[in-house]
Write a protein that binds this DNA or RNA. Structure first.
Lengths: 219, 219
DNA sequence: GCTCTTGTTGTACGATCGTTCAACAACGAA
DNA sequence: TTCGTTGTTGAACGATCGTACAACAAGAGC
């Protein structure tokens, strides 16, 4: 009986988990490794250690390293786009307010984070030579582009008529560039300007877009 | 004599070269490997093969791999900044013409090149965890920032007085972001817009900067 | 023609990489 | 309580990595 009690109280050396949950833990560990150690953090052993599991377990849940990384990239992308969409939907219905919410979310945590840049940069470095990464990019970046395009469309629709009419395609290209560029600059050197200043620059760009009455720009 | 002639005509199996030239060849091979194979091209063996020399030679000219990569990064940075400066100096003296030349050089080869982005991205990925790369960045990026800042300064000085006065610091931040963002977008997806359109967007931004007479932006 | 310097080669070493796989153990079902 | 499923472990493999080093040879100086 004492033996039985001892055995009953004996804590298992490890716990079995559902595949879905374990997979997510491994994905989280992968991203954490990227944040901490950059490209060198992308080793199966480092990821297994970070997740607190053995090396061999990864290959039980993912066929190989590339698939794990692609899954982590997909998760990272989805979290960004979903976060931005949620911020926009929580904002008042006015197009300008929705756009402002988008800017604010873009220049706040967790998106505005030097560690996040470190993760992105490693993924970008794989883009050209990894068909898996390219596929994930295509499927998830679409949502981001569509969101921004929609906001610009309703913004221009509600504004007084412009002369000449705004080129929506070029407007989206320019605003995306300004957003990404500011985001990149801040992550590289957070001391160089405040997030509020970045938002101000973006707002000014949109102001210019909807208020302009001459043909000096965007043609 | 026949033997002597044969020996005399025997081509050396390899040629000795001055350290400076060999170092440059190794640096060029490093960048070429980055363009072709991305981060995976950064192996001593791949670089030696690309340069057409043996593996051991690299460590004769560079103390270790990190120093070689740092040297390649310095060369890559210097070529960019020197190229832009040369383009600006070749332009007419008018501030606006100098700025236009800067835009044109930014959105032309060899700077505007998806392969160049592949190289930059690998270097950026090392930035956070490599003190060597950080040092090189500090010493060479300075020239780029100063060049753009000077051009903006003379541009604003020659323009009619603005109300309120232009915040030169924020203007430089915004223009840099727009430039980098457009450059990045095009390298990721060259089909999405033409380089001339990117130049147009930058010109429009500068137009807005020097012509505006209301306080709606850049505050 | 000989010698000396040194740019260059080729091999070897230890470490670390991704992957495989047999054995183990947790835990629900019978 | 026993059995079967399967999530999990840990060791092992071959490949590749960066580095070190002894031997070689090209080319200048004498």
């Amino acid at each position: 009986m004492a033996l039985s009690a001892a055995r009953g109280a004996a804590k298992p050396r490890w716990e079995r988990q559902l595949p879905a949950q374990r997979r997510q833990e491994l994905i989280d560990a992968t991203i954490e490794c990227l944040k901490r150690y950059g490209h060198e953090g992308l080793s199966m052993r480092a990821i297994a250690t970070q997740a607190g599991v053995s090396l061999g377990l990864i290959n039980h849940h993912f066929p190989n390293k590339d698939e794990l990384i692609a899954a982590a990239y997909r998760h990272f992308n989805t979290e960004l786009v979903d976060g931005l969409k949620a911020a926009v939907q929580k904002a008042p219905a006015a197009p300008r307010a929705r756009m402002r919410a988008f800017f604010k979310a873009s220049f706040s945590r967790p998106n505005l984070d030097p560690e996040a840049l470190a993760v992105w940069v490693v993924f970008w470095g794989m883009y050209r030579h990894s068909p898996l990464i390219q596929g994930v990019h295509r499927e998830s970046y679409q949502g981001y582009v569509q969101l921004l395009r929609d906001m610009l469309t309703e913004l221009v629709r509600d504004a007084p008529r412009q002369t000449p009419p705004v080129d929506l395609r070029l407007a989206a290209i320019g605003l995306t560039a300004l957003l990404d560029g500011l985001w990149l600059e801040w992550c590289l050197e957070p001391a160089s300007f405040r997030p509020a200043e970045a938002i101000g620059l973006c707002e000014a760009w949109v102001d210019h877009l909807v208020r302009r009455t001459d043909g000096s720009a965007l043609e």
